[in-house]
Design a protein around this nucleic acid. Structure first.
Lengths: 329, 329
DNA sequence: CTGAAAGCGCTAACAG
DNA sequence: CTGTTAGCGCTTTCAG
């Protein structure tokens, strides 16, 4: 019933624990004969090293924490980014022999849990995903000196991967201007997130540069908020002829609200989203959007962390964006 | 730089390691005075117990593996289920003091990784998510005697939570029949998944019972496959007047293919999906679908596992379904 | 190159 | 109720 230990293997092979340990850990300073003996015994006994004991002895661990800010229930409940990010990151980290410990960090209690967990030395590194700007977690983790990276820019000092949010927003708005749109509104993400702030800034700057005024509704990256904001914008400024949604999910909501309000897209109102999620291809009409490769970003973030383990410096990485023009604008 | 140990706390408080251990582990058999002394020292030193040492000594662990079959890249890439499931399960498990180790099990190598990991005794239990029917993993894990549950029915013997896939499909098809539809096609999920098989069975039975023939296209639960299957079905049987897609993502793809083929929904072709993901509300027209509460299922699965830890039997749980009628049928 | 021995930090009998 | 004493399974000097 109990699993075999190093000692059992040693006994079986008729060698010392040290030799077994060496073989198991792939050290080269072992006579082939002993090596074979050990390998044989390992196989016969089905030996698998005990990680707890190993961590204790080495003071190291191969676990990595992936920390995701967990929004209140319902919000971003089926965020397509979440799935892409978690999958990609897991794949990348697992390929490097790391175990992924997923932790949600929404409530203050869960933040504490995360801090304790990291403080306990359970993980070799931390990867932050889409933290909110005001979040105190990055700072307190940084203080503990654990290697850390972030997907999405956060407080200074933490190496990150991000896309060019300002530039992407600019390109979106310029496109609308180029198509002759005059009254261009925007639906923002939650303003405590850096990505939201940057996309809003890109929108604002571009309009300011051409002497136009901003028309802003504040959403939270969900479809429902996109629909609500769109309705509100239509109320406030019935003459608007374009809207830039800070993500595709909200653009989807906006499309629905426009449809319900009897506006044609893009004839009456042009819509541009951000992210280029797969769903953007299936809206009616298909969504014009700013493509920023989330999978690539996630993979790059994972590799940034792995690089940190190797002693690399960890310079921020900014991924390029690209406007994908489809029928909605 | 090093983190304080139990011993350091004991020294600081002027008591024995045992007493500190007792206090830290919340045993009640400790004099209040000593308790306070220890708590004080813990606070001053910022002591956090070392989990590796604890696991080693107790032969227990608070980690739980959540194993997700990882489809080839691109497939189900932004599956809304994934996000809902992982979030809900994490929340539930974390609330119970468990750490969630996420593992992808797609390739044979990753399967091996998972087996080794579980064999190494790293986890107290395992939760399977949407495994494919032919998957050998459940059986080999079961053999190791680790507590295990599954979200979605798998090989016999593993306690599971699932929805009534057969019943849900029946209700969908009956609804189409009741609306006078005559030629009802279906787009299935990948047939190596039990859920796909069951939904197909429900469709088939219902049609058979009314003397109609089945029209089947085999998809893989992705939007793109939904679109492709729809095109194919239209080719094969241009006179079809309804389609039951085995999930909403494929229904979304089907809607698009129908639109492109110039068919009106629901006038020419009625569409019913399955799952009731949030996106079903935002299609044009909004999707009629079989609601099965994924969040509830995920939570129930997590609790099933927690129950196993408490020695509860672990009876299968079947969640009810409910047809949500919207404009597409 | 191999083996013996000393821990890693914590828990769990067992005395006191 | 508290302290002492063995380990948990593995790595890692350090001799041999």
């Amino acid at each position: 019933m109990k699993r075999p230990t190093l000692e059992a293997v040693a006994a079986r092979a008729g060698v010392s624990k040290s030799s077994v340990s060496r073989v198991v850990n792939g050290e080269t300073t072992v006579t082939p004969e002993i090596r074979d003996l050990v390998i044989q015994a390992v196989r016969e006994l089905g030996y698998v090293p005990n990680g707890a004991a190993r961590s204790l002895a080495t003071q190291r661990t191969s676990a990595v924490a992936v920390i995701v800010s967990d929004p209140p229930k319902g919000l971003v409940s089926d965020d397509p980014m979440f799935s892409a990010v978690v999958r990609t990151v897991s794949r990348e980290l697992e390929a490097a022999g790391k175990q992924v410990t997923l932790m949600l960090a929404g409530s203050p209690e869960s933040q504490l849990r995360v801090e304790q967990f990291v403080a306990a030395g359970h993980v070799a590194g931390v990867m932050l995903v889409s933290m909110h700007g005001a979040d105190p977690l990055p700072a307190s983790l940084a203080r503990m000196g654990v290697p850390m990276v972030s997907l999405g820019r956060v407080a200074a000092g933490v190496p990150y991967v991000d896309n060019d949010n300002v530039g992407g927003a600019r390109v979106a708005v310029r496109h609308l201007l180029a198509r002759g749109r005059r009254r261009i509104a925007t639906i923002t993400g939650p303003l405590d997130m850096v990505a939201s702030q940057d996309r809003l800034a890109g929108y604002r700057e571009t309009l300011r540069d051409t002497g136009r005024r901003s028309i802003v509704a504040i959403g939270d990256f969900t479809r429902i908020s996109g629909a609500e904001c769109m309705r509100q914008l239509l109320d406030d400024d019935p003459a608007l002829d374009a809207v830039f949604a800070a993500n595709d999910l909200m653009a989807v909501g906006a499309l629905r609200a426009l449809r319900e309000a009897g506006r044609r897209v893009p004839e009456d109102v042009a819509v541009v989203g951000f992210d280029d999620i797969e769903a953007a291809l299936y809206t009616a009409p298909p969504l014009t959007t700013v493509h920023s490769p989330m999978e690539d970003q996630a993979a790059a973030t994972a590799r940034l962390l792995l690089g940190l383990f190797e002693g690399e410096p960890g310079h921020p990485v900014i991924m390029p964006h690209r406007l994908v023009i489809r029928e909605s604008a």
